[in-house]
Design a protein around this nucleic acid. Structure first.
Length: 270
DNA sequence: CTACGAACCTGCCTGC
DNA sequence: TGCAGGCAGGTTCGTA
């Protein structure tokens, strides 16, 4: 599920239910996530009041009195609010009950996500080296030009690197490069300023569009009637290998780049 | 530095 | 129907 738009959608959904509420009870059913939930976690967050919900890249932060609860949803994580307790499912690893009777529930079948308590969230090793937020004014050609200097790495791998720019996963990297007409294997030091500007524009475009559509992506959201997910109808390249390019009608190519499946048009992306 | 592969997990789909 | 194999939205770590 989660790329940046899905995390942002989650944040906006949790905001009215959690902000200003105090932690009453924490239930951890499975500690074995990407990093184990420490034994002190329940004690750490006891009685903390959530003042702000923020997002940094794909991390979600519940900023409390003396620290923050840091969430990452990995590949399959989801968070939702329960108005009243319901029996946990197999992959419901964490419940946090708040003073307003709302329960925050974390579900993550693949357990690639994480939950941590930190007293200095923005100094945390997982956050401190992150690159720019793509939807801010800091995401500029000048910034990318400096980051790209002397680097031969493929542009696809590069824009998925969170130390360069956060929040761009496989789907949106594939889409942004298609819309930009840039071949995903292009070494980044070869990109012109104009190409960098186009890339910034298309990354912002696909992210904003996905957020506007509620972050819905892909297979998890296929209806039981087999109808495609809402956002999947707007995908130009991702998942369309072998199908005709929407611009030139030639079949789209699929190739592993940095161990990730990448779909592109050999004709339109150069 | 850089590049690549492995690792952490389960679920789902395909093909035999 | 069963089972093996391949694939999946992310990120870190180790090795060459």
């Amino acid at each position: 599920m989660p790329e940046l738009p899905e995390v942002e959608t989650t944040r906006l959904g949790l905001l009215p239910a959690i902000q200003g509420a105090r932690v009453i009870e924490t239930t951890v059913r499975c500690r074995r996530l990407r990093w184990p939930i420490p034994p002190t976690f329940e004690q750490d967050i006891a009685n903390q009041t959530v003042h702000k919900l923020t997002r940094r890249g794909k991390y979600l932060l519940l900023e409390c009195d003396t620290g923050a609860i840091l969430f990452h949803l990995g590949m399959s994580g989801r968070m939702r609010v329960l108005q009243q307790a319901t029996p946990p499912d197999r992959h419901d690893h964490l419940d946090i009950l708040f003073s307003n009777q709302n329960t925050l529930r974390l579900t993550d079948p693949r357990r690639f996500g994480c939950v941590l308590w930190t007293t200095h969230p923005y100094q945390h090793p997982l956050l401190i080296d992150l690159g720019v937020e793509p939807l801010t004014e800091a995401f500029t050609v000048d910034y990318l030009r400096k980051k790209a200097a002397n680097r031969r790495v493929a542009v696809k791998t590069w824009i998925m690197n969170a130390k360069v720019v956060v929040g761009v996963g496989n789907i949106y990297a594939t889409e942004a490069l298609f819309l930009a007409g840039i071949h995903p294997c292009t070494p980044v030091k070869q990109l012109s300023d104009q190409q960098l500007q186009t890339l910034i524009n298309t990354i912002q475009k696909v992210l904003k569009q996905a957020i506007a559509q509620g972050g819905t992506t892909l297979k998890d959201f296929l209806g039981s009637d087999g109808q495609p997910g809402y956002f999947s109808q707007t995908l130009h390249a991702y998942g369309r290998q072998g199908l005709p390019c929407l611009q030139c009608q030639r079949p789209l190519t699929s190739q592993q780049i940095g161990q990730r499946t990448t779909v592109f048009c050999e004709q339109c992306q150069s």
